[in-house]
């Protein structure tokens, strides 16, 4: 499958600070590619280099077959996080404006189609500052895709949305992929990334730390988490040699410091509780993210004895 985006040995510096460090990346066409990474890790810089807003100091950036240039390709759409719309412009005007900036002049039918699809038709003559946050986010999404791009970069497209609007946008993103559009999806919502992305890429301190499918990424990490379902709410169990404990009702999850001996942990639980089920699971993307991005010097909770807080 050809790649929509290819980065080879890309480095970007701002003064003495290296924002992106020898980054290699291939985003196959027609996939949803998740960009994750903590704030300040180089995610936005990478996106801006793909958009041609920044030029790399080293390396090459190929986007839709074109190598380094100074202006973004018209086949590329971009949705910045939350903002990106003129407050005093009307919905239809701003969509027309953004479509024309992408060289798509006969855009009225496409605008009407998207407004209809996302249930925003009745807002088309309203000013942006009169819209709710959810509606503005929908309009912003339309502005990114209205020019029928082959590649769309979405930065936190679901932030601040209620479940109904989130589902509407999620369906729209999936529909775009069905149409063959490549989607780069930057997010801090790990569960959304797990659900939607075919491939996930994580950048940390300017370097690539993860790149692959969720299965492939999870396979890199030992199955060191345990999930136990207790029969009743009650006093929390005292567990030794665990970390990253999460309690949710009767469900308890923790990381085993000695994953080769799960029975050791099961026995500890059974000493104080009735255990309905006990399962060794692979770390979630959230866990993996935390393991990588946790600040240096961070002290793990007391591993010899941890009381679970509910």
């Amino acid at each position: 499958m050809p790649n929509a985006i290819e980065l080879h040995g890309v480095t970007k510096r701002f003064g003495r600070q290296i924002a992106v460090d020898h980054l290699d990346l291939q985003v196959p066409e027609g996939t949803i590619y998740g960009f994750i990474g903590p704030n300040g890790s180089g995610k936005t810089t990478t996106i801006r280099m793909i958009l041609r807003i920044f030029q790399p100091d080293q390396g090459t950036v190929h986007v839709l077959g074109k190598s380094n240039g100074t202006v973004a390709d018209d086949r590329l759409g971009y949705l910045p996080e939350e903002r990106g719309l003129y407050k005093r412009m009307k919905v239809r005007e701003i969509l027309r404006y953004y479509a024309r900036l992408k060289g798509f002049y006969q855009c009225n039918a496409e605008i009407e189609d998207w407004l209809e699809r996302l249930g925003a038709s009745e807002w088309s003559n309203k000013r942006i500052d009169a819209l709710s946050k959810g509606m503005a986010q929908k309009i912003q999404f339309i502005s990114a895709v209205v020019a029928r791009p082959q590649l769309v970069i979405l930065d936190e497209p679901f932030s601040g949305l209620d479940p109904v609007n989130m589902e509407a946008l999620r369906s729209a993103v999936l529909a775009l992929r069905e149409r063959g559009t490549t989607i780069v999806f930057s997010t801090h919502d790990m569960s959304m990334a797990e659900q939607m992305c075919d491939t996930i890429f994580m950048i940390f301190r300017g370097k690539k730390v993860l790149d692959g499918t969720l299965d492939a990424i999870q396979a890199q990490y030992p199955a060191d988490r345990a999930r136990a379902v207790l029969s009743e709410n009650g006093a929390l169990p005292q567990l030794a040699e665990v970390a990253d404990v999460e309690a949710n009702g009767r469900v308890l999850e923790f990381r085993m410091n000695n994953p080769s001996e799960p029975n050791h942990y099961l026995r500890q639980l059974m000493q104080s509780h009735t255990v309905e089920s006990f399962q060794v699971i692979r770390p979630s993307l959230h866990d993996i993210f935390l393991r990588i991005a946790r600040p240096e010097g961070y002290v793990e909770p007391d591993q010899s004895s941890t009381e679970v807080a509910r």
Partner: peptide, 20 residues
């Protein structure tokens, strides 16, 4: 100022060069 604070500039610069 609005283009900067509302991150509109990023969208614009994703379509045209700063000079344009």
């Amino acid at each position: 100022l609005e283009e900067k604070s509302q991150r509109i500039a990023e969208v614009l610069l994703g379509s045209v060069s700063p000079t344009q």
